[in-house]
Design a protein around this nucleic acid. Sequence first.
DNA 1: GGATGTGAATAGGTTCACAGCG
DNA 2: CGCTGTGAACCTATTCACATCC
Lengths: 192, 192
Amino acid sequence: VKTEGIRSIYSHQIAVRAGVSPAQVRRDLMAVGYSGSPNRGYEASELLHSIEDFLYDPVGQNVALVGIGNLGRAILAFFSSRRRRLNVVAAFDTDPAKVNQVVHGCRSYPMHELPRVIHEQDIRVAIITVPADAAQGVAEQLVEAGVRGLLNFAPVTLRCAAQVYVEHMDLSVSLEKVAFFARRRLAEGRKA
Amino acid sequence: VKTEGIRSIYSHQIAVRAGVSPAQVRRDLMAVGYSGSPNRGYEASELLHSIEDFLYDPVGQNVALVGIGNLGRAILAFFSSRRRRLNVVAAFDTDPAKVNQVVHGCRSYPMHELPRVIHEQDIRVAIITVPADAAQGVAEQLVEAGVRGLLNFAPVTLRCAAQVYVEHMDLSVSLEKVAFFARRRLAEGRKA
DNA sequence: GGATGTGAATAGGTTCACAGCG
DNA sequence: CGCTGTGAACCTATTCACATCC
């Protein structure tokens, strides 16, 4: 989202930028509850404000990360650069060599401090970047400590209580998906 | 997928492992074209074989990665460890200090060699881990060179020809999604 | 005229439910 | 009996189309 001197914007303009249909945009904006005017479209800053009200917690959320490997560190770096409503405020690892330091602006703790830190910082969202065989156990510890949303990078499907929202980001699966559909498009292209 | 001494398996067993419904499993297996027998279920190794035939290119695919930052390196490390059908065989970056070396088992090249390497290695899938403002340009270079599938980690929506399959992995968006639904579940939990 | 908001139609994907078979 | 394969019902999400307003 950018403020490039634009005051008002029409649904079809938003549509091409997001790569979706104008009807889609209008219906989604119905959901957030902001109405534009037919002659001027949507007033940009007010629209943004409405969307933010709809999406975000009034009080910024704290996030934890478990697993300070290559991927974990990359993600910490990614989020440390751009301050946003969601802040990764604590990282955990089993390796004693990796804990009690500051990694990309984020304090790291040993696993046994996880429940205490989660409670103290009121963390309800966590990122899992541990090896596959440790993921389910970590997830259970996090949920036990009060976390209600998980972003899982480990290549296993986590089994959690229904009240926990789990988003699975599997690099292998995604890449295979791309390879699969790319191959398919290539085949279609040939016969068309 | 694991070989833990299991010969045959029923759809509902697959279902709980994958966290989906048994009907879903059966319908998906229809698509790959493998039929189980009612009394024994699916014969594990044959099923795997059929799925692989359906999913994968007979000849292993080569993959390129553009953007050797923190995230790029983490992904290289991730794929170097586990040899699979998809191999990341080339990495690219604009930074002269990062090119012409071997990063996590993957050779790195300067950007201007991209078209040549893509052609020589017959690469049709690429991973984009460059900053947001460079992503669209990189995508165009890749497509121009013959790539037909993109896995994009940059926080921008890429605009590409229809014959190119683009998968967008946006860490920020995913994390916000988790935070949003976690909050929602929490609210539902309270009133229920 | 051109854009919005929205009911109605449509498409896509999931679940139901049952015939058939071992 | 219990499981598979699959037509049919169902539900969600997208798109169409049009009344409405500036």
